[in-house]
């Protein structure tokens, strides 16, 4: 399997993940090995087979439309690295 360093950079961008130069090189090599191995599945005959969509194919698992408030609202914000007035603080978006 040929994996280019540009592809690894593209994947990291899609995942919004920064990689160091060293990591780019390492993962390019790793992906070549892993994908070569993973590619074996393309030799399997899967004609007439549907994809598995979920693990255990259950249908219509639905919830009633009834309000149940989560009580411990403070706990929802307790882990925020940066918050103000009950909101999560992020860099300016506009």
């Amino acid at each position: 399997m040929n994996v280019s360093r540009e592809e690894i950079i593209h994947m990291a961008n899609l995942a919004d993940l920064n990689l160091s130069e060293e990591e780019i090189q390492k993962y390019t090599k790793d992906m070549e090995d892993i994908l070569a191995f993973a590619n074996e599945i393309n030799k399997v005959n899967t004609d007439n087979l549907d994809e598995s969509i979920t693990a255990n194919e259950r249908y219509n698992i639905l919830r009633k439309d009834e309000v149940k408030e989560f009580e411990d609202k403070d706990a929802l914000l307790q882990n925020a690295p940066s918050q103000k007035n009950g909101m999560f603080h992020i860099p300016k978006m506009i």
């Binding site: 599945i41 399997v44 899967t46 087979l49 549907d50 994809e51 598995s52 969509i53």
Partner: peptide, 9 residues
């Protein structure tokens, strides 16, 4: 997609 077919198999 292929993997999900092999999963069925």
């Amino acid at each position: 997609k292929k993997a999900q077919k092999v999963r069925t198999l």
